[in-house]
């Protein structure tokens, strides 16, 4: 089954909760475990928070979250048209943050990597940033059944 959705909302912190719940609700079609839903919610929250704080620096803007279900995989893209990053590699280092005064832990990207299977960041200074993440749903079940995985992709 393939299915897609896309939401657009203002870069306001109140919408962080909305974004992760919207993705979680869409994801239920794949029958995820509670743990898988929580992993995805955390990753979405990190990406959207980054877009608001860093991409738009708490100023006005729109955040775009798109979500694609493909077989047993979920692909999520979180996009902003904000300031972008010069050095993506540096930004991805654990504990590195450009906003320590706001008590940012520098764990955002590390969390996305920890809770999703794959993550990719594209960024251009002055144009914005897109974070793309992938997670396969039902991996534990598959391992338990000793299966060989689906071959739809």
């Amino acid at each position: 089954m393939n299915n897609e959705m896309r939401v657009e909302f203002d870069a306001k912190s109140v919408n962080e909760g909305f974004a992760r719940v919207a993705v979680a609700a869409f994801l239920t079609q794949l029958n995820p475990t509670l743990d898988e839903v929580a992993d995805v919610k955390t990753a979405v929250s990190e990406a959207v928070t980054n877009a608001i704080i860093h991409g738009y620096e708490n100023k006005e803007g729109k955040v775009f979250v798109s979500c694609r279900l493909q077989g047993k995989e979920v692909w999520i893209a979180v996009e902003d048209k904000g300031v972008g990053m010069e050095d993506v590699q540096k930004a991805m280092e654990p504990f590195y943050t450009t906003k320590p005064e706001q008590e940012r832990s520098g764990m955002g990207f590390a969390f996305m990597e920890a809770f999703m299977d794959e993550m990719q960041v594209e960024s251009k200074v002055g144009y914005g940033t897109t974070v793309t993440m992938k997670k396969k749903i039902g991996q534990k079940e598959e391992e338990n059944q000793n299966g060989c995985g689906d071959s739809f992709n």
């Binding site: 955390t42 929250s45 928070t49 706001q102 008590e103 832990s105 955002g108």
Partner: peptide
Amino acid sequence: EFMDSSGIGVLIG
């Protein structure tokens, strides 16, 4: 029920 890395920043602070 939910916490992300922003919460970690608050706690460490």
